[in-house]
Write a protein that binds this DNA or RNA. Structure first.
Ligand SMILES: NC(=O)c1ccc[n+]([C@@H]2O[C@H](COP(=O)([O-])OP(=O)(O)OC[C@H]3O[C@@H](n4cnc5c(N)ncnc54)[C@H](O)[C@@H]3O)[C@@H](O)[C@H]2O)c1
Ligand SMILES: NC(=O)c1ccc[n+]([C@@H]2O[C@H](COP(=O)([O-])OP(=O)(O)OC[C@H]3O[C@@H](n4cnc5c(N)ncnc54)[C@H](O)[C@@H]3O)[C@@H](O)[C@H]2O)c1
Lengths: 231, 231
DNA sequence: CTGACTTTGTGCGCGCGTTCACAAGCGCGT
DNA sequence: ACGCGCTTGTGAACGCGCGCACAAAGTCAG
């Protein structure tokens, strides 16, 4: 999505064999990983591309091409070794070591995120909760004590991911603080366009946008059926 | 629009004037709408594509092409009329009438969503809260009383959007209930692949996936800098 | 050992989306 | 009235991603 980053990343690969994993593939790797965990707990040792694709909700050809991108080889006539594949994908996603997450903004949404157990289960762990409201500093949520946002530089470690769950007005300021503290990957929940320097990855989750997209399709479907009924 | 050119480009153009709006464009319309609201409150009456693109974080050419898709005309040499554009986009997204939202699963996440004021501000409004837990039925959140999920058929109206915020195990069951009640647009927060019949739009928001994508890029950046340092 | 079956890995064509670049159109100053 | 400059709208090229279809490769039965 970000052309500048694509340009920087694409042009460096002198002697690299392990290089270009397409963005669309990266976005699906977590889905495969989740499906594989379910299959592993079900006792499966190997999976065919057809079965795994079914479980992940994608086409089998797409899945095979995705896996071929990260050099992970299956066995022809048999399929993929589940355990091995989990390790391959986890390694590719950088989940073999716990990924540290720093959450800024412990309001309605931040509280829900902090209390969510689904992150810690697979290599992701929230390490720190930060807020600017003194009334919330000191509060303990899910075993973590909320700290003041001034302590941000001290709780950030190399490779940390920053999560912004503050009001939109404070989001850019918090974003700048995160970048200044050395964070290069940020997930933003605030409904505002953030600006980050080159080299910093920024993703956003915008619930209003999702709902409005659905609203559009609903509206379109209604218009179509009305037209069909009148015609 | 020019019907002759439409005939050249698309294979079917009998009497159609309202053309196909690309999916990628639809996904950006909410961003334009948000930026336009800010501009309107700032007192701007017209906006150039350059300025609006800047505010929405996209390229100006992309923005112009997007707007041209929905037939909304600006004025050359001046730009777009802010108020008019807001109405055009709102109408296209079906936001001129309040869009009814039904939220199923009032846990950590559902509670945050229910208490969020950002939806109601622009044509979106949560109309009902549902849960299967009798201990939560009757609770009042943000002025709405939590009802039992059995009452789902009664609270669904034509054009409703369903939101699933239940545990993954219950998500497919709830999804089926929504579909059976006539809902054709669903937003899913549960980390599981849902199956819906044709004609039903399904979108998902998966926070773990977002974080894992960021983890991948963080991992890749770390590998690159390490390689650069050693080389 | 051989042959047949199963499943992977991928080459190729197609359609969508993005970007560049420019002609057409509109207002404004003179 | 008339050009001048600004902005829109869009034609065209490019790149990415997806799906089909098949050859290569490995397994298993006999
Ligand atoms: N709650 C939802 O369901 C929901 C849905 C969609 C989007 N969002 C967005 O997510 C963000 C958070 O939503 P919320 O409902 O949790 O809001 P909230 O007001 O409940 O919480 C915001 C928190 O951020 C803290 N904060 C404010 N300024 C800060 C700063 N400069 N540094 C650190 N912390 C600061 C506040 O003290 C508060 O605790 C908002 O931008 C909102 O638009 C929320
Ligand atoms: N909390 C988060 O930050 C977060 C983050 C990412 C994903 N999620 C996902 O969102 C979903 C909800 O998360 P949560 O933290 O709110 O969970 P939760 O357990 O706090 O809440 C789930 C709610 O759903 C209700 N429920 C269960 N079965 C139901 C059914 N059949 N019909 C109706 N309601 C039913 C429960 O009574 C409960 O109130 C989960 O799938 C979770 O994986 C949550």
């Amino acid at each position: 999505m970000d052309p500048s980053r694509l340009a920087t990343g694409a042009l460096r690969a002198p002697g690299r064999r392990r290089a270009n994993v397409p963005e669309a593939t990266v976005a699906r790797l977590p889905l495969y990983l989740r499906a594989l965990h379910v299959l592993a707990e079900d006792g499966h040792q190997t999976v065919s591309s057809e079965a795994l694709a079914e479980a992940a909700g994608v086409g089998s050809a797409k899945l095979r091409k995705d896996l071929s991108h990260l050099g992970s080889y299956g066995t022809r006539g048999v399929g993929y070794d589940v355990t091995n594949l989990v390790e391959q994908i986890s390694a590719e996603l950088g989940l073999e070591h716990r990924c540290s997450i720093v959450l800024v903004g412990v309001g309605n949404l931040g509280r829900a995120l902090a209390g969510y157990g689904g992150f810690a289960s697979r290599g992701l762990a929230i390490d720190a909760l930060l807020d600017a409201d003194q009334g919330r500093v000191g509060e303990v949520i899910a075993g973590l004590t909320v700290q003041h946002v001034e302590h941000l530089p001290q709780v950030v470690s190399t490779g940390s991911i920053g999560v912004i769950a503050t009001p939109a007005l404070a989001a850019q300021e918090v974003c700048d603080l995160l970048v200044a503290a050395g964070v290069t990957s940020i997930l933003n929940f605030a409904p505002i366009v953030l600006t980050v320097p080159d080299g910093v990855d920024l993703r956003k989750v915008d619930l209003s946008v999702e709902l409005q997209i659905l609203s559009f399709h609903e509206h379109r479907k209604a218009a179509l059926t009305a037209a069909g009924a009148s015609a």
